[in-house]
Amino acid sequence: MNASLDHIHFLLRRLHSLFGLIPIGAFLTFHLWENSQSRFGADHYNLEVVSALQEMNYLPFIELFVIALPLLLHAAYGLAISGQMRAELSRYPYARNRFYWLQRISGIGILAFLLFHVGTTRIQGLWQPAVRDDLYGHMQTLLTDPLVFGLYTLGLLLSVFHLVNGLSTMAIVWGLTTSAQAQRLFGYLCIGLGLLLGAIGIHGLLGFLP
């Protein structure tokens, strides 16, 4: 048989890594852009942005295979990987080690956040059509609760960190950055990207507030 297929471990890990970026990372980026449209008011958000998406062909198919399944796989495998971690932050207080730890902790945080977030949006919308019809209103009700707002902010920041840090390690995993200097430079690039995504996300969150 083919040597690489013999080493299914390797392919799984690379698939996991890839899923983090495409489609999950891509979805997050798009999703944050989508939600940043909240700033233009309920009508624009509900009618121009959300309904355009909701009317897409094959939507359930896309939602299932492009978002849900990769995310679940990535999450499940990610949890398994996280089990191997023995980070000792006080012994090794180096930035990369903290990021390594946070990558795993944020993964678990994101998982928790998603259960709540998707449960109260997409899933709830399944039997409460009203939610889907006025997502803006729904989000506004949710987010005016400071606790929920806080949770969202946290979920958002964790996700953005997880994505951009994942991106910087991906570059090493796939062999894009090899020298210490290249890894450092690419790291700065990722930080920049993170700040941008974070800003877009916060901006979107604020747009829902009355």
Partner: peptide, 26 residues
């Protein structure tokens, strides 16, 4: 997992993370 502690503690300053990157490419 790219924690990179290895390269920080190596007394011989062996560029372990560069090796890991290069092997990633290979």
């Amino acid at each position: 997992g790219n924690a990179q502690n290895c390269v920080r503690v190596c007394p011989k300053e062996i560029p372990l993370t560069t090796a890991i990157g290069e092997l990633g490419r290979q």
